[in-house]
């Protein structure tokens, strides 16, 4: 496979790499600025071209992480996002499977209604949701937030997973059923594993959108120890003082779990697990 030596190939390689390096620099530049600001003394970003801190310090980081309710708030964020993803997947799996495999009365109508709910941004229902949660005594609770987030994560997951199930050949389940499986066994032992990449991606997206969500969280949450991290971050750059250093340091801390998740999940993100099961 060594193709070195041919001038046209070398030129091609150089051009390709130049483009990639340019794209990487372009997308990394702002991130580097965040890093630089996080580790610079002072409250405002420095004015220079290169994102290098002139007086490096970890003061902002220590201040953010050392805040009395920080770990409590981080736990809020992670548990709310995790619960949202789990609830979404748990409800969506059987629903999506039914929509993909069976025809029943109200199937089309159900899909359309689900689709319709997706047309409104969640902010549009912020006020009614607030009132509902207030009535249920769920304001300032993680449960309340999960319920709100599930209203979008469930339909989203249903559509994702239905698409995934549609691509899994029926033959696989039928083979399993001929081999002695009940339909439930065929679902659990054949369909779910074949859909694993799609389930992982769907869960990841549900997790991330809940983890990053700000507007609804800011509406529903008020008490310091109930906040999620995006709301905490926003409060660093309030009306009176803009602590950009703390904001940047906080952003980095907030990003870490998501980066870790992506790293762990990338094996599943590479699709193609179903390839090779059927056809030659």
């Amino acid at each position: 496979m060594t193709r070195r030596g041919r001038p046209s190939d070398t030129l091609e390689a150089v051009l390709v790499h130049a483009c990639i390096i340019l794209a990487v620099c372009f997308s990394l530049y702002p991130v580097l600025w965040v890093l630089s600001t996080a580790f610079s003394a002072g409250t405002a970003p420095e004015r220079s071209i290169l994102p290098l801190p002139s007086t490096p310090t970890t003061a902002h980081l220590v201040e953010v992480v050392g805040a009395p309710s920080f770990w409590r708030q981080a736990l809020n964020s992670v548990s709310v996002a995790l619960a949202t993803a789990l609830v979404g997947i748990a409800i969506a799996l059987p629903t999506a499977y039914a929509l993909s495999r069976f025809s029943f009365v109200g199937r089309q109508a159900g899909v359309r209604v689900l689709l319709a709910t997706q047309m409104f941004p969640m902010v549009a229902s912020a006020v009614p949701l607030y009132i509902v949660l207030e009535t249920l005594n769920l304001l300032d609770t993680r449960t309340g937030l999960v319920v709100c987030y599930a209203t979008t994560s469930v339909p989203f997951a249903i559509f994702q997973l239905r698409g995934a199930f549609d691509t899994i050949p029926k033959d696989l389940e039928e083979a399993a059923m001929v081999d002695g499986a009940t339909r439930l066994q065929a679902f659990v032992r054949v369909v779910l594993p074949a859909a694993r990449p799609a389930i992982a991606v769907t869960a990841l997206f549900a997790f991330m959108s809940a983890y990053n969500e700000f507007i609804l969280a800011a509406t529903i949450l008020g008490k310091e120890e109930a906040l999620t991290l995006p709301v905490v971050l926003q409060r660093f750059v309030g009306e009176h003082d803009a602590a950009w250093g703390k904001f940047a340091a906080g952003s980095i801390v907030v990003s870490l779990p998501v980066m870790a998740l992506f790293y762990v999940a990338q094996r599943h993100l590479v699709s193609g697990l179903t390839a090779g099961g059927v056809k030659g």
């Binding site: 081999d179 074949a194 030659g280």
Partner: peptide, 17 residues
């Protein structure tokens, strides 16, 4: 599953995982 049969599918239907 109660018929004591085995089937070879046109698509083979091997369990991909």
């Amino acid at each position: 599953r109660d018929r004591d049969i085995a089937m070879v599918f046109q698509s083979y239907a091997l369990y991909p995982h």
